[in-house]
Structures are given as C-alpha cells and as structure tokens.
C-alpha cells in the first residue's frame, strides 16, 4: 500500500527538491502544503504517514506545526528539512518529536540514508 507523504515548504523549488529526492523504489503518494496552516489542515483530515517539514515559513512555521503535532499526535514520522541548522534549533526540533533533521539542500543520498535508518524504506 502507498504511504501518504506530505511535503510542507513555502518554496515551490524546495517542495520539488524534496519530491525529486524521494527514493524511486519508495511506494508513496505525495501531497503538498505551502505553509504550516495548510499542512495542519491536511494532517487533521487525513492519515499522513511521513511529513517532510520546512521551518522558516509564513503563517504557521515549522515549530508551530511540530507543537500542534506533538499535542494532537497527528503524524508519527516527521523529518525536518531546513536551512536553519543552528544547534539550538536542531535541539528544539528533536524535543518536539521530529525524527530527523536534514540540512538543505536535500538530495536522494541524504534522504535515503535517513529513511533506511528509521526503517521507513
């Protein structure tokens, strides 16, 4: 069965980069959200298997999504894909239950490694 995947980033290019970096042998169905608010709406209505989440976004940012997800237990596997790679930010994201942190720009090698590490692939 397809895994429902949600990619949330305010940049069109960044969303495409994540989608293109997904391993070709991974059976997924991809949806997109362009800010945190859109992402939360989708997460509350549908079962999402894996969420790829940017941090610096308008409306609700990545931290806001992680906080809501932490409280409401919507998605089990969240992988943060961010340009903001400061140590303090990485700790904060981990505390809020994100599985992994990928430094932008994302590529297939980095992403495959993480997915294998957590048994998602």
């Amino acid at each position: 069965m397809n895994i429902p995947v949600l990619i949330c980033d305010d940049s069109t290019l960044a969303r495409k980069q994540v989608k293109k970096s997904l391993p070709s042998n991974w059976d997924v169905e991809v949806q997109f959200a362009s800010n945190g608010r859109e992402a939360l709406n989708i997460m509350r209505e549908q079962q999402i298997g894996v969420l790829f989440l940017d941090l610096t976004m308008p409306e609700i940012d990545g931290i806001g999504v992680l906080e809501a997800n932490h409280a409401e237990k919507l998605v089990d596997f969240t992988i943060v894909v961010s340009a903001d790679i400061q140590p303090e930010m990485q700790n904060r994201v981990a505390e809020l239950g994100a599985l992994a942190f990928i430094q932008k720009p994302v590529n297939t090698t980095k992403l495959t490694e993480i997915l294998q590490q957590y048994g998602l692939l």
Partner: peptide, 27 residues
C-alpha cells in the same frame, strides 16, 4: 529566494556557533 534562504541559514549558523548564541531568522 530558496537559494538565499539556504545561504542565509549557513551564515547564521556560523555566526551562532561563533558567538555561542541563537540567531533568529526570518523569511
């Protein structure tokens, strides 16, 4: 904008580590 975002993230990270503090980033 996305290229700049990534470059800006790297610059802030460098500054944050150098000063041992946190740099607040905006779009």
């Amino acid at each position: 904008q996305e290229l700049i975002n990534v470059a800006m993230g790297q610059a802030s990270d460098k500054l944050a580590r150098y000063l041992q503090t946190f740099v607040h980033l905006q779009v």
